[in-house]
Amino acid sequence: MSAAPPGEQPRVWPMYRAMVGVGLMCGLLIVGVFQWTGPRIARNRAEALERAIFQVLPAARSSTTFRLVDGERFEPRGEGDAADSLVHAGYDAEGELVGLALEGRGMGYQDVIHVLFGYAFADETVVGIRVLESRETPGLGDRIETDPGFLANFDALDVRLDESGSALAHAIEPVKPGEKTEAWQVDGITGATISSVAIANILDQSAAFWIPRIRARLDDFRGAQP
């Protein structure tokens, strides 16, 4: 601000009064709005997550979120736990574990793609996928979210473990459009090669990390039905 005219000292008290007064008022307003909308926002978040989980695990009727502890055990996620290393277990109407919704992320054509995919543990397949976040080109790369032929790859994608139980029996591999012959291959999309290959690689990495750990500790999930 420009200096006060000579002979007239800027008075400090009105400045403090104004700043503190306005600050207090604004603070109260924000707290009030937060109190009022907070529960509703939390409910929206939980509903959005459940919708996504039920979409990738069509057999599930309820879900619980777990987190990975010490790189080997799973515990139900408590309030305020860190938001990384999470898996979401889905249960059917009888409370039996039907599978898990796993997250994966990796580089797409434009930016990081973040996906959620369902792992049905009985027949050891991926049964559904949903893109949570992507910035792929509209009309081209974003067909990974809409192309029915591509999404059909994930109706029953083979992710069995090998005999040692520490790695996938067959890595998920991207192939050219229309050349899928094995249950662990992912058909690409013509014109969206990079994005579809990225999805296959993200799935492969995430599955190779999570599935051996999950199968080693299946009881962690069974013991914690909602």
């Binding site: 009105p14 400045m15 009064r17 104004a18 700043m19 306005v22 604004c26 924000i30 909308t37």
Partner: peptide
């Protein structure tokens, strides 16, 4: 109520508050 010298800071404070309200809404 607001002196000239702190007016911009006050405006930003007020605007930021309403933006936060909109964000939550």
């Amino acid at each position: 109520f607001v002196p000239r010298q702190v007016r911009i800071a006050t405006y930003i404070l007020v605007i930021a508050t309403f933006v936060t309200v909109v964000d939550y809404a």
